[in-house]
Amino acid sequence: MNVFRLIGDLSHLLAILILLWKIWKTRSCSGISGKSQFLFALVFTTRYLDLFTNFISPYNTFMKIVYIVCSCVTVYFIYVKFKATYDSNHDTFRVEFLVVPVGGLAFLVNHDFTPLEILWTFSIYLESVAILPQLFMISKTGEAETITSHYLFALGAYRALYIVNWVYRYYFEGFFDLIAIVAGCVQTILYCDFFYLYITKVLQGKKLSLPA
C-alpha cells in the first residue's frame, strides 16, 4: 500500500458516501444516472468475487464489502425507494453499447483465460466507461447540482490517484498491470472536461453548467 492508493481509495469511498448522503438527505436522486450506478454495482460485484477466497488484509476486505453494499443500496435508492425522483427521461444512454463491447474485449484481452480473471478484466474495462451515462445525462440536462459535481470530482480523482500509484509501484516494486493502467487512463481522460469545468466553475462558487 502507498499513500497515493490510500488517498485514492479514500477519495473513492468519499464519492460513494457523498452520493448516498445526497440522495438520503434530499430524498431525491434528481440529476443522478441510475444507469451509471447500476454499472458501478456490476463493476464491484464482478471484481470482488474473490472476496472470501483471496484474503489480502482487513482493510481490503472491509473496503470491498463497503463498496458492494453501498453501490447496491444506491441502486436500490434510485430504482425503488426514491424512484419517483429518478429522471429517466434524461438518463437515456444505451448501456448495452458499453456492456457488450466491454464483455467481448474481456474475452479477447486478459491476463488469464479463467472465469474469475475474465470477470475481473470485464470489471476493469467496464469501470473505465461506467461514468459515461452520468456525463451524458449532465450534457443533456446542461447542468449538475453542486453536490453531484463534488461526487464526480472525488470519483474522478480516485482513479487519477491510482495512476500515480501505478507509476510508484512500477518504479519501487517493479509491478505493473497493463490492463488496469490502460483502462485507468481511459477512465481518467473521460473526466478531463469535467475536471476543467469543476475547477473553473464550481471552485469559483458557480453552478456547474455544460454547454448544452
Binding site: I56, H111, Y162, F175, D177, L178, I179, A180
Partner: peptide, 10 residues
C-alpha cells in the same frame, strides 16, 4: 509482462 501478483488493489 505483468509480474504475477495477487490482486491486492481494490
Amino acid at each position: 509482462s505483468k509480474t504475477k501478483k495477487k490482486k491486492d488493489e481494490l
